[in-house]
């Protein structure tokens, strides 16, 4: 059992000013970023959507990890551990991306994936993907209009 005043947090927190962080201010910044990430894509400009939706998600994640999870004052090996896991994730992505995103190569062709990207061929391609045909190009029967 620990006593009330027993130190149990980050040993170097005071030195790094960890608890002098204005958490409400960080929350305010996160909310502003959320508003931007929702309103940005309304302009329907691809690059703006990418920057506001995904760019801002990275900034929000950075703020949460740094100030709320206190990763900035955690032991460096913990950060390295998390970075290695992120690296493994990217390795998985890079290793499988050519097979899934490219539909043909020197000695192979992925006809079903290729057909899935041709709107007219959706109904033929859907079963090959193990997908139910309904909402391929149009909403399922009885579906509500896009919200």
């Amino acid at each position: 059992m620990s006593s009330a005043a027993e130190p149990h947090g980050h040993e170097t927190e005071a030195a790094h000013g960890g608890h002098h962080t204005n958490y409400v201010k960080i929350w305010g910044i996160l909310v502003v970023l959320l508003v931007v990430s929702v309103t940005g894509p309304m302009l329907e400009i691809r690059i703006v959507t990418l920057l506001t939706a995904f760019g801002i998600a990275i900034v929000k994640a950075y703020l949460v990890a740094k100030y709320f999870m206190h990763l900035d004052i955690e032991k460096p090996f913990v950060v390295k551990l998390l970075v290695v896991c992120l690296g493994l994730m990217m390795l998985f992505f890079a290793a499988t991306a050519p097979d899934i995103m490219k539909h043909w190569g020197a000695n192979w062709r992925n006809e079903s994936a290729k057909n899935a990207n041709i709107p007219e061929a959706h109904h033929e391609a859907a079963p090959a993907h193990g997908e139910a045909a309904p909402a391929a190009a149009a909403p399922a029967p009885g579906a509500a209009p896009a919200r």
Binding site: T96, A97, I100, M101, H122, A137, R147
Partner: peptide, 19 residues
Amino acid sequence: GSYLLHRLGHPEWSTYASH
């Protein structure tokens, strides 16, 4: 990562995402 790969490979998914 798997979702992103499929999403990039299937542009028609944006139609479903609109719901």
